[in-house]
Amino acid sequence: MPELPEVETTLRGIELKLVGRVLASVAIRQPKLRWPITPELSHDMVGEVITHLSRRGKYIGIHTQKGTLIVHLGMSGSLYFVAADTPPMFHDHVDFCFADDDVWLRYTDPRRFGAILWTTNDWLEHELIKHLGPEPLSEAFNVDQLYERAKGRKVPIKTFIMDSKVVVGVGNIYANEALFQAGIRPDRLAGSISKARLGRLVECIKVVLAAAIKQGGTTLKDFVGGDGKPGYFKQELAVYGRAGQPCVVCEAPLIEIRQAQRSTVFCRHCQS
Rank of each mutant, 00 (worst) to 15 (best):
residue 2 P to R: 04
residue 5 P to R: 03
residue 6 E to C: 00
residue 9 T to E: 09
residue 13 G to C: 09
residue 14 I to F: 03
residue 17 K to E: 06
residue 19 V to W: 11
residue 21 R to K: 15
residue 21 R to P: 04
residue 22 V to W: 10
residue 33 L to G: 01
residue 36 P to K: 14
residue 45 M to Y: 09
residue 47 G to T: 07
residue 58 K to C: 01
residue 62 I to V: 12
residue 62 I to E: 01
residue 62 I to C: 03
residue 64 T to N: 09
residue 65 Q to K: 15
residue 69 L to M: 11
residue 70 I to C: 10
residue 71 V to K: 05
residue 78 S to K: 15
residue 89 M to G: 15
residue 96 F to I: 03
residue 103 V to M: 05
residue 107 Y to W: 00
residue 110 P to I: 04
residue 111 R to L: 13
residue 113 F to T: 06
residue 117 L to F: 07
residue 121 N to T: 13
residue 122 D to L: 03
residue 125 E to Q: 15
residue 126 H to V: 05
residue 129 I to D: 07
residue 130 K to I: 10
residue 130 K to W: 08
residue 131 H to F: 14
residue 132 L to I: 12
residue 136 P to G: 08
residue 138 S to T: 08
residue 149 R to Q: 14
residue 149 R to H: 08
residue 149 R to N: 07
residue 150 A to Y: 04
residue 150 A to T: 01
residue 150 A to F: 02
residue 153 R to P: 03
residue 157 I to S: 10
residue 168 V to F: 06
residue 169 G to Y: 09
residue 169 G to R: 11
residue 170 V to W: 13
residue 173 I to H: 05
residue 184 I to V: 12
residue 187 D to Y: 01
residue 191 G to Y: 07
residue 192 S to Q: 09
residue 195 K to T: 02
residue 197 R to S: 12
residue 198 L to D: 11
residue 202 V to W: 07
residue 206 K to G: 02
residue 209 L to R: 13
residue 213 I to Y: 03
residue 217 G to L: 05
residue 218 T to F: 07
residue 218 T to W: 04
residue 218 T to N: 05
residue 219 T to F: 01
residue 220 L to M: 11
residue 222 D to V: 01
residue 222 D to I: 04
residue 228 G to I: 00
residue 232 Y to T: 02
residue 233 F to V: 02
residue 234 K to N: 06
residue 234 K to F: 07
residue 237 L to A: 04
residue 238 A to D: 11
residue 243 A to V: 00
residue 254 L to M: 02
residue 257 I to Y: 00
residue 259 Q to C: 04
residue 259 Q to T: 04
residue 262 R to N: 05
